[in-house]
């Protein structure tokens, strides 16, 4: 049955303003959505990754995000849309490294999507292929060599002592190195170079 046989107003909406008129198309050639949705499925399988499903693209995260306030191209909602559509180019986007993991977005998200977590997962995907800023790599290397992202100096330890904070102890550097080696990450870290170069991140 076709509606042409029915002369009804619901089906004849000349008065409807096309909402698409507001959307300025960025790319001329359309981008394909991969048929296996591999990137999306991988994220969904990771811890907290399945919270992605809940996102209904309300944009509250973007209006809550302090980075988005400064940098208008930083848009966590849009990042999630890309993940939803399995668009792995996101993992190669340096912008996601700007996230502070401040969780402003997450606490405001009406559907409890773990946005920073998902962005971390996207970063992890990028990490392996070198889509990582040099400073981040430096930090990773520092973990490998010292078990910490920052150097702990003598004065620091003294201050902690004065403040009555517990001792930091010695990080299990050896076990860490072993574990990372087994994963093949230690070697990768040594050889990898950031495609973004050493500065201009964060």
């Amino acid at each position: 049955m076709n509606i042409d046989s029915l002369n009804t107003s619901r089906f004849l909406r000349n008065d409807f303003k096309p909402r698409l008129a507001r959307c300025e198309l960025i790319a001329v050639t359309p981008t394909s959505i991969s048929s296996d949705l591999e990137f999306r499925n991988w994220i969904l399988k990771q811890p907290e990754g399945e919270t992605l499903l809940r996102c209904y693209q309300c944009g509250r995260c973007t209006s809550a995000c302090p980075i988005a306030e400064i940098d208008h191209s930083f848009n966590p909602r849009l990042f999630l849309e890309k993940v939803i559509l399995a668009d792995e180019s996101l993992a190669e986007n340096q912008l996601i490294w700007t996230c502070l993991t401040c969780e402003q977005c997450e606490v405001r998200c009406p559907e409890h999507v773990k946005i920073p977590q998902i962005l971390i997962l996207a970063k992890v995907r990028g990490l392996v292929s070198g889509n990582t800023p040099e400073t981040a790599l430096d930090r990773a290397r520092s973990i490998l060599s010292q078990g910490r992202t920052i150097q702990v100096s003598e004065p620091m330890l003294k201050t902690r002592d004065k403040m009555g904070l517990p001792s930091l102890g010695n990080p299990p550097v050896k076990q860490l190195a072993k574990a990372l080696k087994e994963l093949g990450l230690a070697e990768k870290l040594e050889n990898i170079k950031s495609i973004y170069g050493g500065d201009g991140d964060e």
Binding site: R22, C23, T62, S63, A68, E69, H72, N75, R77
Partner: peptide
């Protein structure tokens, strides 16, 4: 607010 159809905050 983010105007999600214009990608603008």
């Amino acid at each position: 607010v983010e105007d999600t159809e214009a990608l603008k905050r």
